[in-house]
Amino acid sequence: MWVYEKKLQYPVKVSTCNPRLAKYLIEQYGGADGELSAALRYLNQRYTIPDKVVGLLNDIGTEEFAHLEMIATLIYKLTKDATPAQLEEAGLGAYYVNHDQALYYQNAAGSPWTATYIQAKGDPIADLYEDIAAEEKARATYQWIIDLSDDPFLNDSLKFLREREIVHSQRFHEAVEILKEERDRKKIF
C-alpha cells in the first residue's frame, strides 16, 4: 500500500497567475510522456519484471506520483486566480467550459489521457527500453516548456523535474545492464 505524506517532494512556487503556462504544463499532467503515464507505466510493469529490478520500478513509479503532485500544484497555482476571460485569452476557454478550474488529465492540445500512451510488453528488455525512452521524452518536454516560460520560480521546479528524468533514465540503463549480466551468466553455467 501507499502512505501519503503532507509535503511536496520539492518546493513549488509560481511568480504570478499565468494560465498560458498552465496550458502547456498540463502536457506533463495528462500527456503521453507526462507524470501520470510514467507512474502507471512503471507500477504496472513491476509485476512481471525480474526480481532484480522490481525495486527500481517500484521506487521510480512511486516518485512519479510525487512529481504528478508537483505538476498539479503548479497548474493549480498558475490558474486559481484566473478569471474566465483570462482563461479564454490563454486558449483555455473550452477547458473552462468543460472543467471550470478543476484539474483534468489531458495533454497540452486537449486530448484526454489514455492507456494507449503506455505499454506492458512482458519482455523485460523491451519494457525497460520503453521506460528509458519515456524518461528522455519527458526530459525533452520539460526543456520545451522551460523555453516557453518566463517565470523563474516555475522554471526552478521544472529544472528539478528535468534532472530527475535524467537520473531515472540512468537508473533504467543500469537495470538493463543488470538483466543482461544475469542472462549471460545463465548461459555460462
Binding site: V53, G55, L56, D59
Partner: peptide, 8 residues
C-alpha cells in the same frame, strides 16, 4: 535519490 541508486 540514494534509494534509487542502491536499487542498482
Amino acid at each position: 535519490d540514494l534509494t534509487l541508486y542502491l536499487d542498482t
